[in-house]
Amino acid sequence: MSYCVLSHLQPAFDHPALQGQKPHFVQEDPPERPNGYKYTEAVAESESFQLWADSGESCPEGTVPIRRTRQKDIQRASSITRYGRRRVRRDSTGSGHEHAVAFEKGDEYYGAKASLNVWAPRVCNEYEFSLSQIWIISGSFGNDLNTIEAGWQVSPELYGDNNPRFFTYWTTDAYRATGCYNLLCSGFIQTNNKVAIGAAISPTSSYNGRQFEIGLMVWKDPKHGNWWLELGSGILVGYWPAILFSHLRSHANMIQFGGEIVNSRSSSSGLHTSTQMGSGHFAQQGFGKAAYFRNLQRVDWDNNLLPITNLRLLADHSNCYDITQGRNNLWGTYFYYGGPRRNVRCP
């Protein structure tokens, strides 16, 4: 369930750096999309993949939809202050966070773009999640890490169910005190009145069946310096003001794509979790069976959208979740990733 809030009263403007400001009016001053971007008019695309819109809900112009936080949502969290925030840093040794990702680093990056198919992986308990996303990263993997993140996620703790949901995240101090999921804290400014961040995605891909995907682009608008989020073909969701960040105020030094799960059993029972990543099938099974990202692109210093050519792969626990890449004329640079959870090779 979502409710409609006047754009200038959304949670973003509770942030000390944003108080007194107003949302960017896209109709009057749209962000400058990257050179090489192919724009096609999106007709009701923002409504076709979200269950909240399918049920007839919508918000009038001048407002934005915000997912309603209920008492039972708060009760599932460890505390009110931790609701909507990650418990540990994603790079922490022994944290239980496991990845199968593709990344490029070492340059100045001003955005990333890809299409990814959506699944409903099994998540075994409310302390774990399974997600697929784009990361925009700057700074070291210490206490000053800045990230912008967007994709789809299954998180029983956050949402109370096992539906894949469209989500965003950001942090400026390695997930310690700043940032949050979606609109659960001040920061991200939504400009779209049709897309509900945190809403369930439907339909989803099926094994040996139809594949459903979403397109994502995050890039730094050269006109005003803010980091914009685009969904699908031309749907501007909103932006992260550059003033929120330290390192990302200027540019990113790494972009990353792929899957992540939390294995809460890693330090307790010794057994691996049964939570799936992606489709729940290994990368080698390929199209129609494994999850994928395709048409991976980056945005350079001159706002050019370019194919990624120096992709590197990382699978923390390749017997549990793996990744394999390829390239062709139709999909550009792409990869398959994911895995089935605990198995013979991953006890």
Rank of each mutant, 00 (worst) to 15 (best):
S2W: 07
C4H: 13
C4L: 11
V5P: 07
H8M: 11
L9D: 12
Q10P: 10
P11F: 10
F13T: 07
P16S: 14
A17S: 05
Q19L: 09
Q19F: 09
G20Y: 07
G20E: 11
P23G: 09
F25G: 10
E28Y: 08
P30V: 09
R33M: 12
R33Q: 08
P34G: 04
G36Y: 13
K38E: 14
K38N: 14
Y39W: 14
T40K: 15
V43Y: 11
S46P: 01
S46L: 01
F49W: 11
A53W: 02
G56N: 03
S58W: 10
C59L: 09
P60I: 13
G62K: 11
R68D: 07
R70A: 01
Q71S: 06
K72N: 12
I80Q: 03
T81H: 06
T81N: 03
G84Q: 00
R87F: 09
R89T: 13
G96W: 02
E98T: 03
E98Q: 04
A100G: 04
A100D: 02
V101I: 12
A102W: 00
K105M: 03
D107L: 05
Y110L: 06
N117A: 07
C124F: 10
C124E: 14
N125F: 02
N125M: 02
E126M: 03
E126S: 06
Y127E: 11
F129G: 00
F129E: 00
S130C: 08
L131A: 07
L131S: 05
I134K: 01
I134A: 02
S138A: 15
S138P: 03
I148Q: 00
E149C: 02
A150D: 04
P156Q: 02
E157D: 11
L158F: 03
L158T: 00
L158W: 00
N163E: 15
P164Q: 05
F167L: 12
T168S: 09
T171H: 02
D173V: 06
G179E: 01
Y181M: 07
L183D: 05
C185E: 12
N192E: 11
N193K: 14
G198I: 09
T204D: 00
T204I: 10
Y207V: 12
N208M: 13
Q211N: 15
E213P: 09
I214A: 07
G215A: 10
V218F: 04
K220D: 05
G225S: 08
W227S: 02
W227Q: 01
L229V: 04
L229G: 01
E230W: 02
G238R: 03
Y239W: 15
L244Q: 14
M254A: 01
Q256F: 05
F257P: 01
F257E: 01
G259K: 05
G259E: 09
E260W: 12
N263Y: 15
S267A: 13
S269D: 07
T273A: 11
S274H: 08
Q276R: 13
G278R: 03
H281E: 09
A283P: 06
Q285G: 08
K289H: 15
A290S: 15
Y292N: 14
V299N: 07
D300L: 15
L305I: 12
L306D: 08
L306W: 14
R312T: 14
D316N: 13
D322E: 06
I323T: 03
R327F: 05
N328W: 06
L330V: 06
T333D: 01
Y337E: 00
G338R: 00
N343S: 15
N343D: 15
V344G: 14
P347F: 08
